[in-house]
Design a protein around this nucleic acid. Structure first.
Lengths: 395, 395
DNA sequence: CGGACTTTCCCCACTCACAGAACAAAGCCG
DNA sequence: CGGCTTTGTTCTGTGAGTGGGGAAAGTCCG
């Protein structure tokens, strides 16, 4: 029993990627797409069948001649995704085509430390395994809410993950599952998710801004994640908006996150509730003794003017930072994602307004700014995309 | 007589790049570097000699055996660089190794329009040609002070270049010189210059910030220029620093360029001179009726406190924007270049201070911020690097 | 000065990847 | 049923590239 089969050359790799992204195809169609002679193609496909990665899937309807033999990725292929958030864990299992077969999610504080959180993640995977979803795991992708040394597969100097610094995440999970594992920043894997199944499918250079507990940005250059020289690229939460803004946890003042991170939004909402400017928020305060970012979202969705106003102000700040990034990076698309983004057409309108006003026409002329449509699945799909790109490439 | 010889395959391309960047080498050394068998290597080198791109250069000293036959790029190879600035033209001719053989520079207002400026550039090239430097031109690189559609070789919507919008620069110069021509933003070619011969030689991801008439940024990702989806990447001059800053030519307020572009610096210097806060600047005002950015530079170099203060304030603004870009991009190096940068250790100190304070430790932990050492040659060397990368690649 | 050793260059045969032709199989249409 | 089309399979030719075996041209040492 081979541990994990990998393609032997670039042709096989391209075939796997095609079967993953385009679905089952006839040999003739595949030959067309990879520009290989039929003979060579048959050779490589036979090898892939031998490796257990591909299998025949019957005959297609005739198109005027002999019926073509369709091939597909082996339906027994499985990829696993762990999306570790600041306050939650998502675990999912997909087939070779990255279609989600099972997905569980539960609240979990990342501050419990790496061993405890990873063990809980594996327990959640165990649940899915009991459903019979896991004949064989071919790879696992992991997203964590902080900077990562991608090459080593370990978090480095993560601000909100005490007890994770340089913890060998890849090695630990790899030992447990016995398959290739890759670890990346959670925002990066969300960007990969959008690249695979979201609005960014045909966009080479784009940004994904995630607004949640923290604020981060996934950067895609030429169809691949850009991570910077030390894995810290996209850390936009502490970009300065103003000198005389609120004090941030990082020690500076006026950081974007201090204006509009999850904690900042809760802080402002609390002030609004106490001042009596919002009936809905005051009600929440009375009921639970606290007001959260989710409460603001709910209140805004219900049309509460003060809540909408909080979101618009935050959107304004995000837009100011994003306008600078758009000027600098000239992306082909900007996607807003994360908890706060879930509801926000008010947010989106404000962000758009500021970016379209403050960035050069050349950069905004053909720039869609949209909300993510993928929600929670962006992260897990991106994680499996990350690992499948790796497993489907020659060793 | 072939027009312009190009390598026929990737092996030949790699050999040319090696001979360009590493200098003349023996066949044995080249074989080592490109991992080719001696037989194949001899074949490809012979083809390059036939194409006139490479020629034998005698025998090296023996290292204990038969003396090795050294090959080098043909010394008759010539690349031409046109670096069109906002207020100047630089024209240079290099050999195949991008060593500058002749370089002329003269003031010229880009606002004279494309035909006039390009004609003047060709006249300057004529001067160099008269010196016998141009047996045959193998390619020309052009830098212009504005956004460029790199694929088409034309400026697009340039703010400071009236009469250049969509002017077919590449076609015009190509027709005149009868060789391949590439056109790019002037900041991008400066970045390429630093990549080739400056401090960025071994850095894959870095930023070059040019502070001159305008403020722009060259972005290098993975050893190549990143241009964005519409060629507008790096346009950081209009990133917002503050809401209540000076009015900018772009119509917004508080743009970086409105704080510290060439015009802004002259404006502030004039105010200082009129207010009598600087003896040196007041003297210049009296003598010439005006004060320029160059006057501030000279005064600061002479130790004038008010001039130094102007530069430090500007550096502070640049640092604030740069801190954001460093957080976002996590580069391995930042180079400050351009007219204002020429003198500025005060400037550099201020930029560093702000960036190191405001960007995350992970991004600044190992981040040199330096002044360009190449000066005017960065642009012309970068332009020839641009075109030689093209000419030295298979058609 | 001559022989042992080294390094480089050149020629040749062998391997390998791949394309393309030829052939076989399996369908459509009239 | 026979021509036509599409697909899959087998076979052979071709060009790229490797590696071995001299030959050439040095150095070093006795």
């Amino acid at each position: 029993m081979r541990m994990t089969a990998r393609p032997e050359n670039l042709h096989q790799s391209r075939l796997l990627h095609l079967l993953r992204d385009e679905g089952p195809r006839s040999r003739a169609e595949l030959g067309e797409m990879v520009r290989l002679s039929r003979s060579k193609l048959a050779l490589e496909l036979d090898r892939l069948v031998e490796l257990g990665l591909v299998e025949p899937a019957g005959l297609a309807a005739s198109r005027g001649g002999r019926r073509s033999a369709v091939v597909r990725l082996s339906p027994r292929l499985r990829f696993v995704a762990f999306d570790i958030g600041a306050t939650s864990i998502d675990v999912a299992v997909t087939n070779g085509r990255l279609e989600v077969l099972g997905h569980v999610s539960e609240p979990c504080d990342v501050r419990l430390g790496a061993p405890a959180v990873l063990e809980r993640a594996l327990e959640l995977l165990g649940k899915l395994r009991d459903d019979g979803l896991l004949p064989q795991v071919h790879g696992a992708g992991i997203g964590v809410p902080g900077p990562v040394s991608f090459r080593e597969g370990i978090p480095v100097a993560p601000p909100i993950m005490p007890g994770w610094d340089r913890f060998p995440v890849r090695e630990a999970i790899g030992r447990e599952l016995g398959c290739p594992v890759l670890v990346d920043n959670d925002v990066n894997i969300m960007a990969l998710g959008e690249l695979h199944g979201g609005m960014a499918r045909s966009v080479d250079d784009f940004l994904l801004v995630k607004i949640g507990t923290g604020i981060g940005c996934g950067i895609v250059v030429g169809g691949g994640i850009y991570r910077g020289v030390s894995g810290g690229a996209g850390d936009i939460g502490h970009i300065r908006v103003d000198d005389d803004g609120p004090l941030c946890a990082c020690g500076n003042t006026g950081c974007l996150e201090a204006y509009f991170g999850g904690a900042a939004l809760a802080r402002d909402a609390l002030a609004v509730a106490r001042a009596g400017h919002s009936a809905l928020l005051a009600e929440r305060l009375a009921a639970t003794g606290d007001v959260t970012a989710a409460d603001v979202a709910a209140a805004a969705a219900a049309g509460d003017p003060a809540a909408v106003r909080l979101i618009r102000e935050g959107g304004h700040r995000v837009g100011q930072v994003l306008a600078g990034l758009v000027s600098f990076f000239n992306p082909g698309l900007v996607i807003i994602a994360g908890g706060v983004a879930r509801l926000g057409h008010a947010l989106l309108a404000e962000v758009r307004s500021v970016v379209y006003r403050r960035s050069p026409p050349l950069a905004t002329g053909n720039l869609p700014i949209v909300l993510s449509e993928l929600g929670d699945t962006a992260g897990v799909v991106g994680a499996t995309r990350l690992i499948s790109d790796h497993v489907f490439s020659p060793a």
